[in-house]
Design a protein around this nucleic acid. Sequence first.
DNA 1: ACAATACCTCGTGT
DNA 2: AACACGAGGTATT
Length: 352
Amino acid sequence: MKLRDVPSACPRLWRSLRVPPAELRLDLVLSSGQTFRWWESSPGAWTGVLEGRVWTLRQERDRLWYTVYEEEEEDGDACPEKDGDGCPTGAAEPDSAEMERILRDYFQLDVGLPALYRAWGAADPRFRKVAKDFPGVRVLRQDPVECLLSFICTSNNHISRITAMIERLCCAFGRRLCHLNARPIHAFPSLSALTGADAEARLRALGFGYRAKFVSGSARAIAEGLGAEGLCQLRAAPYAEARRVLCTLPGVGTKVADCVCLMALDKAEAVPVDTHVWRIAQQRYGAVLGGRSLTPRAHQEIGDFFRGLWGPHAGWAQAVLFCADLRKGQEPRSRGRAKGCRGQDSHRDGAP
DNA sequence: ACAATACCTCGTGT
DNA sequence: AACACGAGGTATT
């Protein structure tokens, strides 16, 4: 199948919904390390997998455009009829009401961002200053299993490598959904795909290092315990309870648990504290918290500090600052965060 | 409770 | 060219 870049080429295959820019900045949200499965397939177009389907998204002024690719047959080289414009026909067009529901849920569009920005800015001048250049940064509502297993991979790691690892994970263990410009696109693996006896060894072969045991171990623990549904039901549990349960899983500590709570389990108050946030808390906010290292107590105190500052959506506010910091570190070539911080400049184009 | 260390790999930087 | 360093942490002393 061919990648779709712009609605004008095949208007019939695209739909849109009204989303003001202040509510969403697609590029910032999809490239800021919340999720590792979207790539900029061509300038302004973002392609990825959501709810078992392959999508391309594009934002233009007040509209979010989307198109969903049809699933391919197993072996047939999927060559549907073409109409006069060379656009595929025949394939059932996706139910746009359902597609729109999925997008609204994923981007949590019912949460009004401008009002939150105003409140955070009123409480925190530093936020106001930084956020001015980064509107539209929101927290995604991700699949809990994908979010959990993905963030287990983030420990002692950097984004470019995490992205590559997740890609290999999906390629090796995930169901193939279709080809886009000859490139196979895979779903995120199901729990059961990762519970085989050889899963750990295979993950190691894929370069997961010591995380191989954590990923396979947590997949197994969930499969044999809560189940994917049980994990999802933690959305209805209190933050502390969800966090406690997550921390029992191998490879899941306070940081990863908070990431999952925030990005998959509806805990808007969860503030994932990493070395990065810790540094910001100390330098920028002059907070005197914890000791000289990131102990569990320090995690708690720093989280409480930001919750006290920003309120019940503290995790969302932190996502804005994190995103801003990530971008700031990329633009000036001169100094600052010089290391491997070019983050997700994964220019994975369509065809080789 | 806190501090120190090992843990896999793979970019970078000397 | 070989080698050290450390990166969105976690588990174990």
